[in-house]
Amino acid sequence: MANVLVLKSSILGGYSQSNALIDHLLTNWEGQTQSIIERDLAANPVPMLDADVANALRGGDSLSEKQQAALAMSDQLIEELQISDTIIIAAPMYNFTIPTQLKNWFDLVARAGVTFSYTEQGPVGLLKDKKVIVVTTRGGIHKGAASDTLVPYLTNILGFVGLDNVEFVYGEALAMGEELASQSITDAKSTLSQLTA
């Protein structure tokens, strides 16, 4: 592994199971990576997509201060993606989907002509040759069920910008008793170790 981008999105801070799994992974990777960029999107949120931000992302000469800041943030987030070989995303399930904070990040990095382009055959992602590991934690058990709308969404949006080498690591049943939760976390750590060996 060389350059790693880590995205955390849990609103639970020190109580977050997804953050804890990511921290466990990074500790075991110590000395094996060239550089790690870590973003906690809950502690340091990026701008939410609104009309001003959407117009800023299209470019233009007469941008307000707010728009210039949003465009600069988008450029920075995209550069972090471009220089990274591996992207690790902590995506806890909130109400059957990803946290708002993570959705805001996707809204700033999905930019026509920069991370994807439109062609006669449809959109083509421009981010290539990167590995993505998504750590998703849930209170219940949703893997493979209709209630898991998080995995299809992330698969689609990541593929949209060219990130199609994606592995999902599940921490499920975390609110279903200590025994199930503990086994699930142990299994998730084991899977992470295998993926990063």
Rank of each mutant, 00 (worst) to 15 (best):
M1L: 07
M1G: 06
L5G: 02
L7H: 03
S9C: 03
I11T: 04
G13F: 06
Y15N: 15
Y15C: 14
S16F: 01
S18Q: 12
A20G: 06
A20S: 11
I22Q: 01
I22S: 01
D23K: 05
D23Q: 12
L25P: 02
L26I: 09
T27W: 13
W29F: 11
G31P: 08
G31I: 11
I36Q: 04
E38K: 14
D40P: 00
L41H: 04
L41D: 08
N44R: 07
P47D: 05
M48A: 09
L49C: 07
A54M: 13
N55G: 05
N55L: 10
N55E: 06
A56C: 10
L57A: 04
S62P: 00
S64N: 13
E65N: 13
A69P: 07
L71A: 14
D75S: 13
D75H: 04
Q76L: 13
E79Q: 09
E79P: 02
E80D: 14
Q82G: 03
Q82S: 09
D85S: 11
I89R: 08
I89Q: 11
A90Q: 02
A91D: 05
Y94H: 15
P99T: 04
T100C: 03
T100A: 11
Q101A: 07
K103P: 03
K103N: 05
K103V: 05
W105S: 13
W105N: 12
D107C: 10
R111L: 07
A112S: 09
G113W: 01
G113L: 05
G113Q: 02
S117R: 15
S117G: 07
Y118S: 06
T119N: 02
G122E: 02
V124M: 14
L126R: 03
K128E: 09
K128C: 02
K130M: 01
K131R: 15
V132Y: 08
V132L: 07
I133S: 05
V134D: 03
T137K: 13
T137D: 12
G140D: 14
G140C: 06
G140H: 12
I141F: 07
K143E: 14
S147R: 12
L150Y: 03
V151M: 12
Y153K: 15
L154D: 08
L154Y: 00
T155E: 13
L158Q: 03
G159N: 04
G159K: 03
F160P: 08
V161D: 00
V161P: 00
G162A: 00
N165D: 15
V166Q: 06
E167G: 07
E167D: 15
Y170N: 06
E172P: 08
A173Q: 11
L174E: 08
L174M: 09
G177V: 04
G177F: 02
E178T: 09
S184Y: 07
S190M: 15
T191F: 10
T191A: 10
L192W: 05
S193H: 10
A197K: 08
